[in-house]
Design a protein around this nucleic acid. Structure first.
Lengths: 155, 155
DNA sequence: TATATTTGCATCGCACACGACATAATCGTG
DNA sequence: CACGATTATGTCGTGTGCGATGCAAATATA
């Protein structure tokens, strides 16, 4: 494919990724509004539902988000009483984030969301096998790209 | 798959989409910084390189972005002398966005970027055929999801 | 042990995204 | 032609993302 053609919007691979990511966040909105949270806040809850207490740093590693994004986000969630923030005894630098009862209670209410979203994304053109393959490619790209941006910080 | 498992981060399909989208934008950064633009601004240039003059509305349709996002973005680009904004004679509501010489000249400098990015994303695990299949799935999702969010505006 | 380096978290500034809403121009229908 | 509905653009407020930078606690090293 010539360089001319590669600069056309319809031949871009990154543009559909960017668009779908935004559109899916929008598709989540009506579900998450009922829970009073945003999509990034939902991601924080996802990791805390797996492990009730985590440091800001560890949440960032799991979600590939920096602390300068997470800190204000987590504070907003604290204000909404979804979680608590406490300094670690062992290491005064570390802030431990823990679910509150309210934060934990949202897990049940969110239980049906992944399946609802998946149903929205499946049709005669897109089979479950396509989604599984797509996830495999995306996971591989996360490995490549997050490795790259880590080495940026090393310099 | 049980509801419990679907709430695990590793089983989410939307999370890798969200992460890869951000990581790719970050991967574009060093290339686009040389041109003095951001990724969304690059997208605006992509559509203007195909058609030298477009209304804000049409740019929004192509990029799936609302005018309340595009208006300030385009004004920043005007300030950087990449494009001009003029009211249409035919319809005073319409703002016509046109490339300047400077904006047009970036096309050559950007010509190699898509191939560079693609090379970054291809490896022994991800073949070109995987990327083509992925794009097909994403395009289908754009159809589904942008249709949905349009009908939201109708009500 | 003193000091240089690293680490964890945070603030600041800037640029998106987007819902809600405002405004002016245009259109559709009677 | 009148006037209500629609359309194109824009402002405002809120919430991310992220690079640059600050700061204090912990660690490594001379």
């Amino acid at each position: 494919m010539g360089k001319e053609k590669q600069l056309k919007l319809e031949n871009q691979i990154c543009f559909p990724l960017y668009s779908v990511s935004r559109l899916i966040t929008k598709a989540y909105k009506p579900y998450l509004e009922q829970l009073g949270i945003t999509y990034p806040q939902y991601l924080v809850l996802l990791v805390l539902w797996e492990e009730k207490t985590l440091s800001v740093n560890k949440i960032g590693r799991k979600l590939l988000l920096n602390t300068n994004t997470l800190s204000p986000l987590i504070k907003r969630m604290e204000k909404n009483e979804l979680l608590t923030r406490t300094r670690s005894m062992d290491d005064e630098r570390t802030v431990l984030v823990s679910l509150t009862e309210k934060g934990l209670s949202l897990k049940d209410k969110a239980a049906h969301i992944p399946q609802d979203l998946l149903n929205l994304l499946l049709n005669e053109d897109v089979k479950l096998s396509d989604v599984i393959l797509l996830k495999k490619t995306l996971d591989s790209w996360i490995n490549i790209l997050s490795r790259d941006s880590e080495s940026m910080n090393d310099k």
